[in-house]
């Protein structure tokens, strides 16, 4: 479905991704793990077309994404829910959700998807006309995911959805991610919370300073010594 091949990405002067390859198949939940600064967000921004790779290709169902602008990539069904939530604070909850669906033409389907989002996150329905800035951190994360879902993603990319949230809320978010996966949404999940992300993933990639150092099923990775070190916060040299 999505194929990233040998991309070299520079972020300013920083060589952020050094020949990284990755693929996501239809219906899969793939976790992209790694410490701060490993290049995980850069990877998502490259897929979304915000940053362009110097070398390498990103293809989605045989379409070359590296030549497309972010807005077109969203139209292809690849939607990113960015790190730090980045909801529109001065817009109401319903306006935020409408912005997720702003490019869609199938107005009839919208109502159904709105109900779907509200069934995943009932709290959003209760806060429907509140401004986004007045929501709690967890509610804002739910709104951010809901907003992305309103774009009807075929591939949903979530960047650190558990960042800065209380443990109980993290559980809730992960439960919803699993639910989405079961409903057939293809997901590429970026997380620092490796244990949880591995627990729900079909496959994982471990990124370290711009390289994929490990990849495979969650079980494969769990048995690996480097991952053990990663859990402890050390970096395998």
């Amino acid at each position: 479905m999505l194929k990233v091949e040998n991309i070299e990405v520079y972020y300013g002067h920083i060589h952020a991704l050094k020949g990284v390859s990755l693929d996501v198949r239809e219906g899969e939940l793939v976790s992209l793990l790694g410490a701060n600064g490993a290049g995980k967000s850069t990877m998502l921004m490259t897929i979304s077309g915000i940053i362009r790779p110097r070398i390498g290709t990103v293809t989605y169902q045989d379409i070359d994404l590296t030549k497309k602008i972010p807005e077109e990539i969203v139209l292809q069904g690849i939607v990113q829910c960015p790190e730090g939530r980045r909801i529109f604070g001065s817009l109401t909850v319903i306006e935020n959700l409408r912005m997720g669906a702003v490019r869609r033409k199938d107005r009839a389907e919208l109502k159904k998807d709105l109900e779907w989002v509200f069934s995943l996150f009932p709290v959003l329905e209760a806060r429907i006309s509140q401004s986004g800035a007045t929501l709690s951190g967890g509610e804002q994360q739910m709104l951010a995911i809901g907003r992305s879902l309103m774009a009807k993603p075929r591939l949903l990319m979530l960047d650190e959805p558990s960042l800065g949230l209380a443990p109980l809320v993290v559980q809730e978010i992960f439960k919803v991610i699993q639910q989405l996966h079961q409903q057939g949404v293809t997901i590429l999940l970026v997380e620092q919370n490796a244990r949880q992300a591995m627990a729900i993933a079909d496959r994982c990639y471990l990124l370290e300073t711009g390289h994929v150092v490990l990849s495979g099923t969650a079980a494969d990775l769990k048995s690996n010594i480097a991952v053990e070190q990663f859990y402890l916060g050390g970096t395998a040299k």
């Binding site: 915000i50 807005e71 939607v79 980045r86 529109f88 912005m99």
Partner: peptide, 24 residues
């Protein structure tokens, strides 16, 4: 209107607007 709301969204967060597919 959607365009008016998009304008408010873009003025608040250009990157998030692009990631949502708003025609900036």
């Amino acid at each position: 209107t959607d365009m008016g709301t998009s304008m408010r969204a873009v003025s608040q967060d250009l990157l998030a607007s692009r990631l949502m597919g708003i025609n900036t």
